[in-house]
Design a protein around this nucleic acid. Structure first.
Lengths: 193, 193
DNA sequence: CCCATTTCATATCAATCGTTATGAAAAGAG
DNA sequence: CTCTTTTCATAACGATTGATATGAAATGGG
């Protein structure tokens, strides 16, 4: 009983996320977003309310896509250290898009947007909790499987490994080469032994 | 033989740096900068050429101030691990200004500005080299003083410790508490043993 | 087939952006 | 004192920003 929408919100969100991911929040304009998504301004505002709303939705979309995939890799069976390394390597692959070495969208948001938006800050905090929990759980499991010393504090080590994930995003966006990234992963993993 | 300047470029640069540090590059306008520095637009443009020029000068000023002080602390005599920790703690103190937990200006620049400015990217890279070298040198010295196993790769460990400094900046800007920062330092230092 | 409703494609809005131009003010040189 | 030069304090510039308004186009219900 009304004109149908000509775009898929999920597709538009994916494309918008890629643009925010690459250029950041402030340097991405609404017109940039309409050009990239192919969606007119009316459509974007109708679905996502405003620019910040679209950005916040992109943060959620990142968590549900990239982060979920990486954490799934983390949870696969096997040696904990190997799975953690595999998760890091997958993350590195995902942080290089068609737009270049864009890093971690959440880490970028923490630097650029969180200080001025409580909602963005909360999403960053939630993402950090998610990663801390996931790495911490993985280490707890490693303990029960006899892969990690019972004397290790899996919570604090989990927090360290979570931060390491964001560090990889920073290194990548800062233009580091693969050898530097590999070295950082290797060194970080020595904290488990 | 002409009207004298009514402001001190160094003072203005310091104030401008603090504002860029807190709000980032894009969200800081020329008018914000004139208000904060007390310098009229003509003066800023005359000395720093344009907004990007002022920002790049702020990056240098950060290196010559904050970074130099932290690396001086790193080079003080004593146990390497203790000096590194002291340097990290000093860095954390410096990354909390009157404007809040602003993190590391260079890390912020890497995320927000480096992808769109070759000059900013080069300054970020140079800063990363500076930190890598400083930590690497400190570890080499620790080896000669018998504080670090000769089997350790001080270059790769130095790179890791340098990245850890930027990680602290990220954690701080992302709103982490002091306990999280201390934990990250403590865990990172276990890579030396 | 027509009407109510929603989206589409633009046009437009005031505000702000980085940058530059303008004229008064302030200094030393002659 | 006058002239030249540079800075100061603003005004102004065109461009772009996020957001909204406008009318045509497209659907399903009656």
């Amino acid at each position: 009983m009304a004109r149908p929408r000509e775009f898929e919100p999920e597709e538009a969100l994916q494309k918008a996320m890629l643009l925010f991911w690459s250029k950041g929040y402030h340097d991405t304009s609404i017109r940039d977003l309409t050009a990239r998504t192919g969606v007119n301004q009316y459509g974007l505002y109708a679905v996502f309310k405003n620019k910040l709303g679209l950005y916040l939705a992109a943060l959620d979309h990142y968590r549900d896509g990239v982060t979920a995939e990486v954490l799934a890799k983390l949870k696969q069976p096997g040696q904990a250290a190997e799975r953690i390394e595999a998760a890091y390597l997958l993350l590195i692959a995902r942080m290089q898009t068609a737009d270049g070495a864009v890093g971690c969208l959440i880490a970028n948001a923490a630097v650029e947007v969180a200080p001025e938006s409580d909602e963005a800050a909360e999403k960053v905090q939630a993402h950090m909790r998610l990663l801390r929990q996931a790495f911490g759980d993985r280490l707890e499991r490693a303990k029960t499987e006899g892969q990690l010393s019972a004397e290790k504090d899996s919570e604090s080590l989990g927090a360290f490994l979570a931060t390491t994930a964001y560090s990889l995003g920073f290194l990548l966006r800062a233009g580091s080469d693969q050898a530097t990234l590999r070295n950082h992963i290797r060194t970080a993993l020595t904290t488990l032994t």
